[in-house]
Design a protein around this nucleic acid. Structure first.
Lengths: 162, 162
DNA sequence: ATATAATGTTAGACAAAACTAACATTTATA
DNA sequence: TATAAATGTTAGTTTTGTCTAACATTATAT
């Protein structure tokens, strides 16, 4: 039995997330691919895998393929979900380009609290699955991003007495 | 002449930000206070100040008070502004409590890109300085946060043909 | 089947940023 | 003003996570 309560470092979370992503592609996960996806050299990967193996988050034998334990999977997926939520906010609400959105999500995913992430998720649920009112509102936002000022037409609608 | 293009580490940004905040209180800035505000021991502060002094971002002589150079001020204020923007989003849009909002902002401020931050700023400008339409929209969001579902009354309004 | 390429590991160096313990200086106080 | 308390520094250790160089293993291809 082991205690997993000790928080993982950002770096270790990155490794787990990368393995989740690579695993989802169906092919066996190799050190080199992790190295590429994370932009670190291979010895760094070997060393990280050793640690994660000792923490029972990763299964990896010398020269072998890499896979996740149940707990590793759980954490990796969680991190990846944080990533997707943040990226979704950045691209769909803030209209940040893919590049920046991904890079930012990749760093913020390690530091946002559970509390804030839950709220962000709700926020996205609310805004993006809306019958109609918010579509209107989002249109206004798009316009504001594009032209730096409010769309008069939409504005009038808003101001008008109901 | 010196090149400041080399990115500062998160830690060094934290020190500059802390000094900005302490400076704004009017009293001379001491090592101990920086130590308290950042939750590190005093030798860590001394050592950080030494580095920042060498990079011409901080003025600090042995046993003396701490102050910022122009460049240090510039960077420190920038970081602090990022912090405030993020906190504002977390508290005013996501309704995250002060504690979490501050902690999260404190970490995210170092990793969010300029691009995303600018968009976030615009977003807040748009949403929070709105004549009326968005106030309505925000009310809906508040309700959704509170009760986990949409307010029927507000919803009807949204759906109704205009 | 063997040489070569690709892949993976080991060992050891290094940097950042924290820490503790011990010492130095400054400030406050009796 | 002498001494205690508060404040600050130095030296040295530790942790984490990189890296390079050299070596080991596995896969590929003639």
């Amino acid at each position: 039995m082991q205690y997993f309560s000790n928080k993982l470092t950002q770096s270790m979370e990155d490794y787990l997330e990368a393995i989740v992503i690579l695993t989802s592609k169906g092919k066996p996960v190799k050190v080199t691919e992790i190295s590429n996806i994370l932009g670190v050299k291979k010895p760094s990967v070997t060393s990280a895998l050793k640690k994660l193996n000792e923490s029972n988050l990763v299964k990896h034998e010398k020269y072998g393929d890499v896979s996740l334990t149940e707990e590793g999977k759980r954490i990796g997926h969680e991190v990846y979900k944080r990533h997707r939520t943040l990226r979704r906010f950045l691209t769909e609400i803030l209209k940040v380009d893919q590049e920046h959105a991904d890079a930012d999500a990749c760093r913020m995913e390690h530091v946002i609290s559970k509390t804030s992430l839950e709220k962000l998720t709700k926020f996205l649920d609310f805004v993006l699955n809306c019958p109609r009112g918010n579509a209107e509102w989002l249109k206004g936002l798009d316009y504001y991003f594009k032209y730096g000022k409010r769309n008069k037409k939409l504005l009038e609608k808003c101001n008008r007495k109901e």
